[in-house]
Every structure is written in structure tokens, then in C-alpha cells.
Nucleic acid binder design. Structure first.
Length: 269
DNA sequence: TCGATCCTGTAG
DNA sequence: CTACAGGATCGA
């Protein structure tokens, strides 16, 4: 489900729906999703008021009264949203927060790979300190990207997905950004010429920026986003289909255990 | 830096 | 049945 743009939409939705709500009770259906913490830890949230929700990279931080914070990572299939009544919770609900007004904050996650933890301000600071720059921030400049890539000899694609270097680029948008900037995903990060780094910087911001806008539009007006803009997909998942620029076949390879899609004709020196 | 791992679900 | 899935971490 979520890359950065979808996480961003989840955060906005949650902020609008649940700010100022008070927690009545918390039910951990699947302790694995809060491991290594203990379900009893979450009792501290009973009676706490939700003050704010924000995003950093693909993490979600929910601030409650009484100095309590919940940190969420949706991983592959997680989702977080409010339903009108706790009895509506779906089958794959792993954790749910019954609110005082009888609504329910649902943490749904079919593969159960995501994590939710009760944390302190200091824990959050530590999590954030381990992350690279936000790709959509003004501080993320072409010069910074060049610095990041300069010393790394690994193939570019896994490098831009490394959250410690740049925080928030996932598997889909990594392939997409490299296609837009005509960079071979197998090329060593250090060997990318300066003008291609500039192009990559532009592509990352464009691809992610567009996706943030459409993810939000999809939430505000479901079904109105044109297919061509809904995911910004030019190469991802299009193995053996014609490249949109040159009509040659898109290839699929595996890097770091993840699928990479690219055009061997457009993406080369 | 690769491969295994955490899990369930779906497509072929 | 196998392959694969939008993520991240761990140990060899």
C-alpha cells in the first residue's frame, strides 16, 4: 500500500478525522505488530487526547496528551484510518483504538509486517536522526544529492532507496525517477555525471510531488484522479511492455531482493 | 552486500 | 504448486 505519498495522505486524513479525540480503550489483536513492546504498555493511552499527527519519511508520529507518542510504520500493507463505529472493524485489523465518541481508529495490516510503538520524544528524535533528508524539502538540493551519491559505489537504485541516505523513496518511485532521468539503475552511484544528478533530483521531486498531490486528491475526491497521474507509473510493473519514450521493451531485474524496471535503451550513458 | 526473515494474500 | 508483493532489519 504505502510509499511516501500514501503515508502523507494517511496522515492528513487522520489529523482531520481524529484531532482532539479521546481514547477510550486500546485493543492489540496481534502483539507481533507492537513487538518487542508488551500490550499492557498501551493502557497508558486510555483517556489520552490525540493532539496531532505528522509524517517524517514513511514514519507516522501521533502525539497524545500526557507526553505520550505513538510511532507507526505501515511497511508493505499497513493502513490507518477512522471508522464511524468500532463494530465495523475489518478482518485484518491488528490494533484498534476505541474513541470516546464510539468511533474507532483502525490499524489494518494484512501481512502484519508493520509496527506501532508507544515512544517518548527522545525515541522519536533518535528515529528521525537516523534518517536522511526529506526528498521534498527545500534543503534537499541537487548539491546535497551529489554529496550523498559521490562516495557510494553501490548501484544507484538501492542507494536512493536507503532511508539513511534519503528518506522516503520506495521501490516504485525509485524505478520511476531513474527512468525519467535516463539513468541505468545498475550504474554505481559515484559514476553518475553531474548533469544526470541534476536530472535525478528534478525527477525525484516531480515524481514524488505529483504522487503526493494525487494521493491527497484521491482521498478528497475518490475516483477522480486520471489513471495516467494516479501513480505516475511509466516503468514500474511494465516488464516486456513498450517504453513510453522509445518503444523498446521494459526489463525487470532484481536488486537487493527488489524488482527494478527500466528501459535498457533510454537508461544508459 | 547478499540472503533470510518477518507475514498474508493474490495471480498465474 | 510457485512467484511475487509499494519495507526494513539482521547476520553471515
Amino acid at each position: 500500500m504505502p510509499e511516501l505519498p500514501e503515508v502523507d495522505a494517511v496522515v492528513r486524513r487522520l489529523r482531520e478525522a481524529a484531532s482532539s479525540s479521546t481514547i477510550h480503550s486500546v485493543t492489540i489483536e496481534r502483539p507481533g505488530n507492537i513487538a518487542p513492546q508488551n500490550p499492557s504498555t498501551f493502557r497508558a493511552l486510555h483517556g489520552a487526547k490525540l493532539l496531532n499527527v505528522r509524517r517524517r519519511a514513511k514514519y507516522i508520529f501521533i502525539e497524545f496528551s500526557n507526553q505520550l507518542h505513538v510511532q507507526v510504520h505501515l511497511r508493505m500493507t499497513g493502513n490507518l484510518y477512522v471508522l464511524p463505529d468500532y463494530r465495523f472493524r475489518p478482518h485484518n485489523t491488528r490494533i484498534w483504538f476505541r474513541l470516546k465518541d464510539n468511533r474507532v481508529l483502525i490499524y489494518e495490516d494484512s501481512r502484519a509486517l508493520g509496527r506501532m510503538h508507544l515512544v517518548t520524544r527522545e525515541d522519536i528524535a533518535a528515529t528521525e536522526a537516523a534518517l536522511g533528508p526529506e526528498p521534498l524539502d527545500a534543503a534537499f538540493t541537487p548539491a546535497l544529492l551529489q554529496t550523498i551519491l559521490h562516495s557510494v559505489k553501490s548501484p544507484i537504485k538501492p542507494v536512493i532507496m536507503d532511508q539513511r541516505r534519503i528518506a522516503g523513496i520506495g521501490n516504485i518511485y525509485a524505478s520511476e525517477a531513474l527512468w525519467h532521468s535516463r539513468i541505468d539503475p545498475r550504474l554505481s552511484a559515484r559514476d553518475i555525471p553531474k548533469r544526470k544528478i541534476t536530472a535525478l533530483h528534478t525527477a525525484i521531486q516531480k515524481v514524488l510531488g505529483n504522487a503526493v498531490v494525487s494521493a491527497y486528491a484521491e482521498y478528497a475526491q475518490p475516483g477522480t484522479t486520471p489513471e495516467s497521474e494516479s501513480f505516475g507509473v511509466a516503468v514500474y510493473g511494465r516488464k516486456d511492455e513498450p517504453c513510453l519514450k522509445c518503444k523498446k521493451s521494459i526489463l525487470r531485474i532484481v536488486q537487493g531482493g527488489r524488482s527494478t524496471f527500466f528501459c535498457p535503451n533510454c537508461q544508459r550513458p
